[in-house]
Design a binder for these strands. Structure first.
Lengths: 232, 232
DNA sequence: CTTGACATTGAACATTTGTTCCGCTATACT
DNA sequence: AGTATAGCGGAACAAATGTTCAATGTCAAG
């Protein structure tokens, strides 16, 4: 089975993401076709079936707009960049809105490793925070830290980092970065170095060396806005 | 206009909430009617219009399942928000119940923190966590850390620590302890030392010295189960 | 070149789903 | 009593939406 996403399928996913974000409910087949530039509903249906086989989406047959997204899977290909579309729910009880943040998977803080694939949403993969904790409620997602490269920044192995999706960063920001070619996401401090970008671990130990790559090979997934730790 | 929700309207709202969380998309009019016990679609439509007038929901006419919820408004009537005592039913796909934890104040700021789970304290804010993160949901509260005495344990000034209320502790636990005479609560590692108790800061710097007191002068307020940090 | 898997198209079809209209009942008010 | 109105039920209708299928194009392997 083809494991790669065609550009058309990517567009479909992107549209479902943005549409769901705008409207709080999924698009219809025809709405998808119209946006992506597909004249036939059957083609949309065809690709949707493919996407379901690849577990990017879940379909409820015979149901209008019976479509839902698999965020962990989307994150694997860098599309999960704005996971706040997940029914993030807010309330004003006691004066503070709450934000539901999906924990999308593992992120390497040591040697870069791939985001852990998951076919299902882990029941514990959610963190709910009061709005005041994170400031804005938009574009938040979370990752579980693997490795000790950020220990010097008081981010430990096993911590959950909450990030706000953004494509850029300022020097000194702690970011999750996707490195082209390596196909891996890593948690580092962000610095510009001429035309390059230096991804700097906080841990001064020699085995944790900075990664320096041309700017066009580094894709910022988000900036760390919060850290959650659990003692067992 | 009647500003109150009929029990039927409440049931409708509850169903929309649970359905949406279960399926990631809103229910259809007929599905609502079937669940709530309304045989006619027009009645559902009628009440949905009412609910829209009262701004509990937003409708997209002519669109299947074109329904979205107004969470802030729902929270006003206790729907959609799930305080500890009244958890909303959740599917496993969507995560476990949520726990609302009150942030009672500062720790190590000189003011003793009285932990009375039943008292009507006025918390400065709330932190919501997924149930799975903290294990049990009982007797949880939170404090904002002041000072750097635990920096070596990767707990920084400004972090929010979440504690479970308990009177005792095991060696090595991180606890919030109230010291008789000093009239203040501090965050330290807990150790027994004969008839004394040693409260050990994690920071090795000389200005942070362990506190050793007779056991009857130390009152454990709770054990740290989680740490939340926010970057600004 | 042939073959076959894959992708696409257009259109017809079936189902789901929202909308509307008419009538009924109970209650409150004049 | 008469009337107005909110709430409900039933059914027909129209629009939205998912499903299916035969035919065609694409492209790489044999």
């Amino acid at each position: 089975m083809a494991n790669t996403l065609s550009s058309r399928q990517q567009n479909i996913l992107k549209f479902i993401i943005s549409f769901s974000e705008r409207n709080k409910f999924p698009p219809s087949i025809r709405e998808i076709g119209e946006q992506v530039g597909i004249s036939s509903t059957s083609v949309v249906n065809y690709n949707l079936t493919k996407l379901e086989e690849m577990e990017y989406v879940t379909r409820h047959r015979e149901v209008s707009r019976g479509l839902s997204l698999n965020w962990p899977k989307l994150a694997e290909v860098g599309l999960g960049a704005s996971p706040n579309l997940e029914p993030v729910q807010r309330s004003t009880v006691f004066g503070g809105n709450r934000v539901r943040v999906p924990v999308l998977g593992l992120i390497a803080a040591g040697q870069p490793i791939m985001v852990e694939p998951r076919s299902q949403v882990d029941p514990e993969s959610w963190v709910d925070l009061a709005e005041g904790i994170t400031g804005s409620t938009d574009n938040l997602f979370a990752l579980r830290v693997k490795g000790n490269s950020m220990i010097d920044a008081s981010v430990l192995d096993g911590d959950i980092v909450i990030l706000r999706h953004q494509e850029t960063a300022d020097d000194g920001d702690m970011v999750a970065a996707w490195i082209e070619g390596d196909e891996e996401t890593t948690l580092k401090y962000f610095f510009r170095q001429g035309k390059d970008i230096r991804l700097q671990p906080a841990n001064p130990a020699p085995e944790y060396k900075p990664i320096i790559k041309p700017a066009n090979m580094v894709r910022i997934n988000g900036k760390v806005v919060s850290v959650v730790r659990v003692y067992h």
